[in-house]
Amino acid sequence: MRKSSPSRPMRLRTLLTYLSLLPLGACTKSCDDYDNAAEFNRAQLPPYTETGAHTMGCRLGPQVWTVLGHHDAGRAIIGGTYWEKNELWAGPFNNFLTPPRVPLLQVMGRMTGVRDSKAFYDMELNMVFHLTDTLGGLRLLGTDTARATTGIQPEAMWANDYLSFSNDYRSRTRRPVRLQIRRLDRQQRIVSGTFEGWLYGGPGGNDSLEVADGRFDVKY
């Protein structure tokens, strides 16, 4: 015997009940207070490994930088507060400046410090490099973006300051970031290495930011 479907009034009551509960569920994610200041102050560089541990860290100016905390993604998505966990990402980098035959990898992470639900530090670090075995593993991440009118070109590093977009920093040819690939395992898809150098930008584009003690170990 065929089972009858719910009547239209019953379906309507079910929908209204769901809608009445939705703001409570949304607020659980978007309205909760968040504070990671203590964890931020204890942040340390990850140990250097070559196992695909999915880590990245460096000293970015005076600050120990690693992937940590949650950033407020709500302003761009829902116009309110929504804390989203920062995660390390590694995958292909593609743009119209890059020939399809050139294998490029992008490694990207973000560190956010929040006190009483207000960010006091929010810096994203990106690097893009060739997945090749040339130059003994050495990469010079030195694209001078001051001369690039169509976007970020390959083999570069940049730091985005989400608290002040005028404070972004980018690698340049005059003093490039030296990236040393120490393991490139194409079968297990692991790449690890170290990096150091300088990024340039900041207010007016005349500031500099030292990158030191950099290390990463990712699966791609």
Results as ranks from 00 to 15, higher is better:
residue 155 E to K: 05
residue 162 Y to Q: 09
residue 201 G to W: 00
residue 185 D to I: 04
residue 213 D to V: 02
residue 31 C to M: 10
residue 217 D to W: 00
residue 91 G to I: 04
residue 89 W to M: 08
residue 154 P to K: 00
residue 196 E to V: 01
residue 99 P to T: 03
residue 77 I to Y: 07
residue 98 T to F: 09
residue 20 S to W: 07
residue 189 R to F: 04
residue 192 S to M: 01
residue 50 E to G: 05
residue 71 H to F: 12
residue 177 V to A: 11
residue 174 R to V: 10
residue 22 L to T: 11
residue 94 N to P: 09
residue 2 R to V: 12
residue 129 F to E: 00
residue 25 G to E: 07
residue 43 A to K: 09
residue 207 D to Y: 06
residue 137 G to C: 05
residue 55 T to H: 04
residue 14 T to V: 10
residue 81 T to K: 14
residue 218 V to K: 00
residue 186 R to D: 09
residue 145 T to M: 13
residue 77 I to L: 15
residue 129 F to D: 00
residue 12 L to T: 12
residue 208 S to I: 06
residue 90 A to Q: 02
residue 101 R to N: 13
residue 30 S to T: 14
residue 184 L to S: 06
residue 53 A to T: 12
residue 147 R to M: 11
residue 62 P to G: 10
residue 2 R to I: 13
residue 47 P to V: 11
residue 210 E to A: 14
residue 24 L to V: 13
residue 123 M to Q: 13
residue 121 Y to K: 11
residue 57 G to P: 03
residue 119 A to E: 05
residue 177 V to Y: 01
residue 90 A to G: 06
residue 102 V to K: 03
residue 53 A to I: 03
residue 95 N to S: 15
residue 91 G to W: 05
residue 194 T to F: 02
residue 75 R to Y: 06
residue 203 P to A: 14
residue 52 G to E: 08
residue 72 D to F: 00
residue 138 L to Y: 09
residue 153 Q to W: 11
residue 45 L to M: 10
residue 118 K to H: 13
residue 203 P to T: 08
residue 166 S to H: 14
residue 49 T to A: 12
residue 80 G to H: 12
residue 50 E to D: 06
residue 45 L to Y: 07
residue 12 L to I: 07
residue 69 G to N: 05
residue 175 R to L: 15
residue 219 K to G: 11
residue 115 R to Y: 08
residue 64 V to M: 12
residue 128 V to M: 00
residue 15 L to Q: 09
residue 132 T to W: 06
residue 105 L to G: 04
residue 148 A to C: 10
residue 64 V to D: 07
residue 158 W to M: 04
residue 212 A to V: 06
residue 7 S to H: 10
residue 76 A to T: 11
residue 175 R to W: 12
residue 89 W to Y: 13
residue 174 R to M: 14
residue 58 C to R: 01
residue 46 P to F: 07
residue 133 D to H: 15
residue 206 N to V: 15
residue 182 R to G: 10
residue 22 L to N: 03
residue 20 S to T: 11
residue 70 H to I: 02
residue 7 S to E: 07
residue 48 Y to E: 12
residue 3 K to V: 13
residue 7 S to P: 00
residue 20 S to I: 11
residue 123 M to G: 00
residue 144 D to M: 06
residue 190 I to L: 04
residue 7 S to W: 05
residue 209 L to E: 00
residue 213 D to H: 09
residue 128 V to G: 01
residue 69 G to Q: 01
residue 211 V to H: 02
residue 70 H to N: 12
residue 162 Y to D: 00
residue 171 S to D: 06
residue 102 V to F: 08
residue 1 M to F: 11
residue 166 S to N: 10
residue 33 D to Q: 13
residue 136 G to P: 04
residue 14 T to N: 09
residue 6 P to D: 08
residue 208 S to T: 14
residue 32 D to E: 13
residue 196 E to A: 15
residue 105 L to F: 08
